[in-house]
């Protein structure tokens, strides 16, 4: 248990460093798509919502699980669509 948690902390710390490296290179012009794109990525919590749904036993828990999945899917679908909509607009000088 403690070992497993500690391993998780290792991964967390390393990933934060990777994140800092990756994100610092993104130019200010793309900061809004970056926000909405990373926001879409954080919709990965859908994985948790799916697993939790498959365990929900009572009606109340099922209702909560349903809400969790709706929220997470909204986050994923809306996030990716909006990011794509924005990125499509960026164009170089037209001839």
């Amino acid at each position: 248990m403690v070992q497993e948690l500690l391993f998780g902390v290792y991964i967390f710390v390393l990933a934060v460093f990777v994140g800092f490296e990756l994100i610092s290179k993104i130019p200010p012009i793309l900061h809004t798509p970056l926000m909405s794109g990373s926001n879409a990525i954080s919709g990965i919590t859908i994985v948790g919502a799916m697993i939790a749904t498959s365990h929900a036993s009572s009606f109340i828990l099922q209702a909560l699980a349903f809400t969790a999945v709706v929220f997470a899917v909204l986050n994923v679908v809306g996030g990716y669509l909006i990011t794509d909509r924005m990125l499509r607009m960026f164009k170089k000088k037209s001839p």
């Binding site: 497993e4 948690l5 998780g8 991964i11 967390f12 710390v13 990933a15 934060v16 990777v18 994140g19 800092f20 990756l22 994100i23 610092s24 900061h31 970056l34 926000m35 990373s38 926001n39 990525i41 954080s42 990965i44 919590t45 994985v47 948790g48 697993i51």
Partner: peptide
């Protein structure tokens, strides 16, 4: 992002931990 990473700790899911920390870092930089 941090919330996602913490969910990863709850479920012992490394994909969530990695992804959550990426987003957490991104938000912090901005």
């Amino acid at each position: 992002g941090i919330a996602v990473a913490l969910t990863g700790f709850v479920l012992f899911n490394h994909a969530l931990i990695i992804t959550g920390s990426l987003v957490g870092a991104s938000g912090l930089i901005l």
